[in-house]
Computed example of a mutant assay.
Amino acid sequence: MGKAYLRTITGSLFLGFVLLLFSCQENEDPGLDARVAIDLLDVKYSEDRSNQLMDVYLPANRNPNTTKVFVWIHGGGWVDGNKSEFKGFRPWLEEVQDDFAYVAINYSLYNISQGTNRFPTQEEDIKKALAYIKSQLPAWNVSDYVVLAGGSAGGHLALLHSYKNNEDNLVKATVAFFPPTDLTTFYGFSAFTNLLLENIMGGNPTNRKENYFNGSPLNFVDPQSVPTVLFHGDKDTVVPISQSKILEEALIAKNIHHLVEYVIGQGHGFSPQTNKELIGKMQGFLDGVLE
C-alpha cells in the first residue's frame, strides 16, 4: 500500500514536471534566429496613426558587430507614395552591399482634401521610426551603423533627420536622390510647387518663415554633420538641380565628407541603368566612411 502510494505520488510529480517543462517551452519567446533571413512586414513603429508602418528585411548570419542597416524613405511630394517603393531599389543595393539589413518606412501623408497631417508631421514620424529602429537593434541582431536614404520628398526627410534630429548619432551617413533642401528657395519654382508648399507648410515663406526654416535641411548643416551622398538630374522639372547645388556648397563650406553627382540629361527619376551605377558609386563612398 505504501509503495503503491509512493509510486502514484512519484508518477504525478513526474507528469507535472513534464507538463510544466513543455508549457515553458511553448511560451518561451524563441527570438529572431540570426542564422536565417527574416522579413518583418507592416511593423508598427508608433500607435499614433495607422500608416506608421515599416518593412524590415534581416539577412541570414547577421550579427551586431558587422551587419549595417540601410533605411529607405519613399518619395511622393509628402502627399503620395509608400514603402513599397523600396522594392525597386533593393536588388541594386543587394548587388553591391554585403551584410546589410534593410528597412522601408511609411510616414503620414498630407491629406489634400482634408488639410490634415501638415508638416512637421512627416518629420516627427521619421523621428519615431528611427527611435523604434534603435530600440530593436539588439533583437534584430544588427549593428547601430545606420544609413538613412530616400528620394525626392524622402530624400528631404532623410537629410532633415540626419542634420537636425540625429542627436544620438544613430545615423552614420545619409543619401538623397533629387531632394528639396531649402524650402524657402524651392518656393517659387513653379505654380505647382507654390500650391503644394502653401498647403503643407500652412502658408508661404513670408507668413510662415519659421516653418520653412525649420523644414529645410540646408539650415542645419554644421561641421559635425554626417557624410552625405547627393544625386540630381540636370533636367529635373520637379525639384530644380539648384536645390542640391546649394547643399553641396554648404557641405564644402563645413568640410563635410560628401559625394555629389549631377546626372546629365535626366530628370526627376533616373533610368534603371543609371540607378544601378549610382548605387554602386554610393556604396564605394559608404565603404570608405563606414569602416
Rank of each mutant, 00 (worst) to 15 (best):
Q283I: 08
V79A: 11
F213K: 02
A158W: 13
G154F: 14
N165K: 00
P272V: 15
L183F: 08
Q114S: 12
Q266H: 09
Q122P: 04
K68R: 08
A104E: 05
G151I: 02
F231R: 06
I73F: 11
F100C: 03
N275C: 14
R35F: 07
G269L: 13
V175I: 11
G233A: 14
G11N: 04
W78S: 00
Y5R: 15
S113K: 10
S190C: 12
L148S: 12
P59W: 13
C24F: 10
V260A: 06
F189M: 04
A253L: 14
K44W: 10
P179A: 03
G288I: 07
T67A: 05
S113D: 14
L32A: 00
G284R: 15
I73N: 04
L159W: 05
G265C: 03
S271L: 14
G215A: 12
L196A: 11
L278T: 11
I73V: 10
Y132M: 06
P217V: 00
D33E: 06
G267E: 11
A131N: 05
D168G: 07
S12M: 10
F89R: 10
N207W: 14
F270I: 04
T237N: 13
R62T: 02
F231V: 13
Y57C: 00
V146H: 01
N199G: 05
L290N: 01
Q114D: 08
T193N: 02
I252M: 15
Q25M: 12
D236C: 09
L20W: 15
S244T: 03
D55Q: 05
Y212H: 05
D168Q: 09
F17L: 09
S190Q: 06
W72Y: 10
E28G: 14
I133M: 03
I256N: 07
L159I: 05
F177N: 00
Q52L: 04
H161E: 07
L251G: 04
D99C: 11
G11Y: 07
L170I: 11
H156W: 00
M54A: 07
